[in-house]
Simulated scan of single mutants.
Amino acid sequence: MTIKKTIKKLESLYLETPEKIFTMYLNTDPADPDQQGGEWRIHLKNGLNRFEKYLDTDGNQSELKNFQKVKKAVKDFFKENELDLKKSVVIIATPDEFVYSDILQIPVDTEFFWEEIAKVDQLVRLHQEYPKAGVILTQKEAIRLVETELGKLVDTVVYELDLDTEDWRKHSAVSRNHSSASATSGKSINLREQFIARFEENRKRWYKSITPMLDKLAKDREWEYIYLVGPHEETHELKDLMNKPINACIDKNMLDEHHDKVIKTIHDL
């Protein structure tokens, strides 16, 4: 489910006392000057204890028991995921379940709520700043797709052109064959030069054969933004051939860069 659909689901939630909805945005960023000593643990403890103390003082035992169920589930979540924390954690939970939880690589402002509704203001803002996007990286006979949402990787895959059949073949990103790019012998370099000349002659036709698939992926995966990254002539060729609107072309060779660097590049625009 996309974050856009998740937000709509969360906005429809409503519970009445003694059941309410717990919403937490917690800054866990180790690079934050205010988090150098792992202060998020103190913020988490204080945030949970504040509600528990208030409900105990208020004398609503049924609501207190419901909150304590949520508190235990939240503490268990951090015990299980403490070593995997990034910059922030978002949890929205009822006494019966975690409706939404995520460990994010983008910052949030620490907030805690125990109310009849889920507080989604920060999620809405994060979605606006880090929408679901498709990054199409191209470099001659290879096209790599990096899908991202809320600043993290959703999926990545590579398509390579089979020169014998002139078909684009799908590979996992980790299994991409780098032999052509890393060849050093005189014969291999000469073959590479011949291929580049052939590619330039046939680039439009070969790109035209893959753009319908790229358009379909963009539609099926509900990309809200599309970025093309690669040599200027290649990205603009793809842009002209695709039906889906392109939000930005980035003239950089990043086909083999780590996905974190690719995602950071588009968000730094």
Results as ranks from 00 to 15, higher is better:
residue 1 M to E: 10
residue 8 K to V: 08
residue 8 K to S: 13
residue 10 L to V: 09
residue 12 S to Q: 15
residue 14 Y to M: 10
residue 20 K to A: 08
residue 21 I to F: 10
residue 24 M to E: 10
residue 25 Y to D: 04
residue 36 Q to E: 09
residue 36 Q to N: 03
residue 36 Q to V: 08
residue 43 H to S: 14
residue 49 N to D: 12
residue 53 K to G: 00
residue 56 D to Q: 14
residue 58 D to V: 05
residue 60 N to Q: 10
residue 64 L to D: 08
residue 66 N to I: 03
residue 69 K to W: 04
residue 70 V to F: 06
residue 70 V to Q: 11
residue 71 K to P: 01
residue 72 K to F: 09
residue 74 V to N: 01
residue 74 V to C: 01
residue 75 K to D: 11
residue 76 D to Q: 13
residue 77 F to W: 08
residue 77 F to C: 07
residue 79 K to M: 09
residue 83 L to P: 02
residue 84 D to E: 14
residue 85 L to R: 03
residue 86 K to H: 11
residue 88 S to N: 02
residue 89 V to T: 04
residue 93 A to G: 05
residue 95 P to W: 02
residue 97 E to A: 07
residue 101 S to R: 15
residue 105 Q to T: 11
residue 109 D to C: 06
residue 111 E to F: 10
residue 111 E to Y: 12
residue 113 F to R: 06
residue 114 W to E: 06
residue 114 W to F: 15
residue 116 E to V: 04
residue 119 K to P: 00
residue 124 V to N: 14
residue 125 R to L: 12
residue 126 L to A: 05
residue 126 L to P: 10
residue 127 H to V: 03
residue 127 H to Q: 15
residue 133 A to Y: 03
residue 134 G to I: 05
residue 135 V to H: 01
residue 137 L to V: 09
residue 137 L to H: 11
residue 145 L to D: 03
residue 146 V to Q: 05
residue 149 E to K: 11
residue 151 G to M: 00
residue 157 V to S: 14
residue 160 E to G: 11
residue 164 D to S: 11
residue 166 E to P: 00
residue 170 K to T: 07
residue 171 H to S: 12
residue 173 A to K: 14
residue 175 S to R: 12
residue 176 R to M: 12
residue 176 R to V: 14
residue 177 N to F: 01
residue 179 S to P: 01
residue 179 S to Q: 13
residue 181 A to P: 00
residue 181 A to D: 08
residue 185 S to C: 12
residue 185 S to Q: 09
residue 186 G to W: 01
residue 189 I to P: 03
residue 189 I to L: 07
residue 193 E to G: 11
residue 194 Q to T: 10
residue 200 E to G: 08
residue 201 E to A: 14
residue 201 E to F: 06
residue 202 N to W: 00
residue 202 N to K: 13
residue 203 R to F: 00
residue 205 R to V: 08
residue 206 W to F: 11
residue 208 K to L: 01
residue 210 I to W: 05
residue 210 I to Y: 04
residue 213 M to N: 08
residue 217 L to Y: 08
residue 218 A to W: 01
residue 231 P to Q: 10
residue 233 E to N: 13
residue 237 E to C: 02
residue 240 D to W: 04
residue 243 N to Y: 12
residue 244 K to R: 15
residue 245 P to C: 04
residue 247 N to L: 05
residue 249 C to S: 14
residue 251 D to Q: 07
residue 251 D to C: 08
residue 252 K to W: 02
residue 254 M to W: 01
residue 258 H to W: 07
residue 258 H to G: 10
residue 259 H to M: 00
residue 259 H to D: 14
residue 265 T to C: 12
residue 266 I to H: 06
